[in-house]
Design a protein around this nucleic acid. Structure first.
Lengths: 343, 343
DNA sequence: TCCGGCAACTATAGCGGTTTAGTTCACCCC
DNA sequence: GGGGTGAACTAAACCGCTATAGTTGCCGGA
């Protein structure tokens, strides 16, 4: 005999399948004594629910889906993502909800997987990451009528719930700080231009540019790789009037930028200040250590899980949760611009 | 009406459910013309299989399980793990097999999840990581009779398949190289002592110690964190006769060690050579860049997926696949020991 | 002409649960 | 003592799909 079923239990206890089901799910309809006996036997026989059978009946799948459309080989590089995943898992595991993960080539494939998993009741909801500027995935998820939470925002994700951090506010705090130190030529090595949060950061820099009297506040977009981060830095430091401060959209790129500065003989922080979005072991370990916008990414992931579970529990609901704005952790890589500096 | 079922299709085409099932699964029993009509209608109605229903009938779940017992907050730190996951995903996605992921507190919980998912037919097989020295999980997986692949080896994983890299060989290549450079005091900042691969690396160092005339070839174990890596480095560099070379069991710890060397005024590579197990963007970006044992972790993950799929397809099978031994990539952090060095 | 055989279907029984509509039966009360 | 009531339980339908045992009808051969 394979795994025991409730029918086996029913037979052994001498009751019907229905009674066993009631007992195992803690609902009324069985006497306490019977319930106890059933639970006892179920334990003895080492019974476990068959989730597929439950799912057929329309119950929860006890799993959420996460589909990521990125070249898989680049995923491993970002500490941010792994941390987020960890936090997400922690939040879900607490409720014994598993995660269905799949990495695909592009957004088309991603939407196809959404459709598949949704109609197969494989998952109770989806988590969508890397929100783009005009993102067709939002519409697909809305159509499917499956609970979904978008990482990123605010706005432009229709009726879906979202969890986000204020990238604009974060960028402003960086620029304000740099301006206060006396920097006027601040550059920005940004991430992928189609990402919503990249746009918000770029706009924030542009906007504060006037207010703070910055000159030549430029954003160069990259694919988040250390290679492009380094290339962008080289370009910036090769200008006739080079920036006195560079803000990087990720810790990996900031570290790469630091390397380029070293290679070009530009001293950090004397001649160049460096700030990283996203804090991690990288920024702490670097020499000089890097001033970074720090947030508790693990907690961020856990919040995401929390909202996901809420939306699954009450599908009518729509939540929009703004998390703590990243705080600036000042380390060795920032200082007032050097006095040698012609302005 | 919710999602269409094969009954809906059957009704619309005017055949029985069975005929539809045959047609959709490409098996004989329907005339070509009928099949074509059925497929046509299925497409029109946007039908998709309900995996739970299929699973109930005993079919594949088209998913494999990965359960990790680590404090979730530490997961994000290791580029290795994320890379592996990416490769694994890439291999699985190619066959449209998804991954069920769960992070739990300890091995007990991990085994509980194995039992759960196995009897619920949630997954077709398991991937087990972090093989320990005497690992109770092996027995559980064998008992469950579910296909499983162990990451790590060789040996000591019973009837389960495995994919592994030769840690012994790798360690020997590092030590040989360091010895050839003239190093005689080589230390090792190792990972968790209960891990099988940690043991193998430690043993390899001890063994070559005699052969190469190393003195005081010590291994300090850590939890893989940058903090403990730094602490171990501090301890080593505080010795009266400090090592002239340190081998780290991970790139993160090597980077942390580099930081400690800087903080203690020990120049790398003049006074201290540093080598890292595991290569990543970290070792490339560091200053000085770090000599590392490099392997294609992404490919490693893909191999793992491949073996997993094979074992699922043919459960009687047992495969033991040794992957490429990591190769030493020499960078700036290694050099002959300084001449100032008393021996 | 009648029967065997095959292709093309149909009808139906599961798979392992949940759920709903009964069915018993003890008990209470007028 | 008859009827109403609620608790405890049973029987059976159902979820969507697969698999298997029929059934039908047509063709070919003796």
């Amino acid at each position: 005999m394979g795994r025991p079923t409730i029918a086996d239990i029913a037979e052994r206890v001498g009751v019907s399948k229905g009674a066993v089901s009631f007992a195992l799910n803690g609902r009324p309809g069985v006497a306490e004594a019977t319930r106890a006996r059933i639970l006892q036997v179920a334990k003895e026989m080492n019974w476990r629910p068959h989730s597929a059978a439950r799912a057929l009946g329309g119950a929860r799948a006890e799993a959420v889906g996460l589909v990521i459309a990125r070249p898989a080989s680049t995923l491993g590089v970002e500490p941010f993502f792994a941390q987020l995943l960890s936090g997400l898992q922690a939040g879900l595991s607490a409720q014994s909800v598993a995660m269905h993960l799949m990495i695909v080539e592009d957004a088309e494939a991603e939407m196809e997987v959404y459709r598949d998993w949704a109609s197969a009741h494989r998952v109770d909801g989806f988590i969508m990451v890397d929100l783009k500027v005009r993102d067709p995935r939002v519409e697909v998820l809305e159509e499917l009528g499956v609970p979904a939470v978008v990482l990123g925002g605010p706005g432009r994700h229709g009726s879906l719930s979202s969890v986000w951090a204020d990238d604009r506010e974060a960028m402003l705090s960086v620029v304000d700080y740099l301006a206060a130190l006396g920097h006027r030529r601040v550059a920005h090595v940004a991430g992928l231009p189609e990402f919503r949060h990249t746009q918000r950061r770029m706009r924030a820099l542009r906007d504060s540019s006037r207010r703070l009297g910055l000159v030549d506040a430029v954003s160069l977009t990259t694919d988040f790789s250390d290679a492009e981060g380094a290339a962008a830095t080289r370009a910036l430091l090769s200008r006739r009037l080079r920036p006195t401060a560079i803000v990087y959209d990720s810790d990996v790129m900031a570290l790469a930028g630091l390397g380029v500065a070293g290679e070009m003989g530009v001293r950090v922080p004397d001649e160049l200040s460096v700030v990283a979005f996203d804090d991690s072991v990288l920024t702490r370990i670097a020499h000089p250590s890097i001033t970074a916008l720090s947030r508790d990414t693990f907690a961020y992931g856990r919040k995401l899980a929390e909202v996901m579970l809420e939306v699954v529990a009450d599908p009518g609901r729509r939540r929009e949760l703004k998390t703590e704005t990243p705080r600036l952790i000042v380390r060795e890589s920032t200082a007032p611009p050097g006095s040698w500096q012609a302005d």
